[in-house]
């Protein structure tokens, strides 16, 4: 599903990823852990196509296609979703307008018909309920004045609605209270399907006890330093990243 080979990425002239390789098969959930500043968010941005992240070498294939050749919105239409570590505020743009525009943009690119207002509302309400969110969220300007945890839930709401094939979650668990963490994990688990893959970036083993990963990778100094099963997360929690040296 996702094949990253020898990826080198520079940001603002500094090389952050230095030959990263990683494969995620359909149906799998992989966790990426690593020290602050090691390049985890950089990896997520590159997968989503953020301008300013220069790929100097390497390849990324997604569903057999050259992911790096696609525009960000093409990637979204092809099922790539990034839950941002720092969700962005859009003043004056209501949650409802944003969600509906996004959903219909993606549907259009997939050759599906627009949802009308009623169909859309029905779809959103279901997701809101399962995330214990209120309809108030839809009326407010997107992410404006949201608490940290509300922003993260809002990311999950979008993911649930857009039903991506490849979801990259960048520290979605940070800032969530214990109940919210459980809800988010349930949401992620509900999306688990044979045709889908997920890359879960986190600092905490806690999330991984709810979302049990198929593989755990340690990203440090710009590369995957070690990979293992779910027990690797426990080991990291106990021992830290000392053996992998400092970030970058």
């Amino acid at each position: 599903m996702l094949e990253i080979h020898d990826l080198h990425v520079s940001v603002g002239g500094a090389e952050i990823l230095k030959g990263l390789s990683l494969n995620v098969a359909a149906g799998e959930v992989h966790a990426v852990m690593g020290p602050n500043g090691s390049g985890k968010s950089t990896l997520s941005y590159v997968l989503a196509g953020r301008p300013g992240y220069d790929v100097t070498a390497g390849t990324v294939r997604y569903k057999g296609r050259d992911l790096l050749a696609m525009a960000p919105e093409e990637r979204a239409a092809a099922g790539v979703f990034l839950a941002f570590q720092y969700p962005v505020e859009l003043p004056g743009v209501s949650g409802a307008t944003f969600l509906r525009t996004a959903l219909n943009a993606v549907r259009k690119a997939r050759g599906e018909k627009d949802l009308d207002a009623m169909q859309f509302l029905k779809a959103v309400r279901e997701r809101l309920r399962s995330l214990s969110m209120t309809e108030e969220t839809l009326k407010r300007a997107l992410n404006v004045g949201f608490s940290g945890g509300e922003k993260k839930r809002n990311e999950m709401l979008q993911m649930a609605l857009l039903e991506p094939d490849l979801a990259v979650l960048d520290e979605t668990d940070s800032g969530l209270d214990i109940d919210a963490l459980k809800l988010v994990a349930d949401g992620v688990n509900a999306l688990r399907a044979p045709g889908r893959a997920m890359l879960v970036i986190t600092h905490y083993q806690r999330l991984l006890s709810h979302i049990v990963p198929d593989r755990v990778h340690v990203l440090a100094r710009g590369r995957i330093q070690r990979s293992g099963g779910k027990e690797l997360a426990l080991e990291l929690e106990a021992r830290g990243y000392a053996e992998f040296g400092h970030a970058a």
């Binding site: 300013g52 919105e73 004056g92 743009v93 307008t97």
Partner: peptide, 24 residues
């Protein structure tokens, strides 16, 4: 740039993104 990218990541092309942000 972060607002534009956020919108595009959700499937909006650049013009849609600008229109949405400006209308907001």
């Amino acid at each position: 740039e972060d607002q534009l990218f956020y919108c595009r990541q959700r499937g909006l092309d650049e013009e849609q993104a600008v229109s949405l942000i400006v209308n907001g």
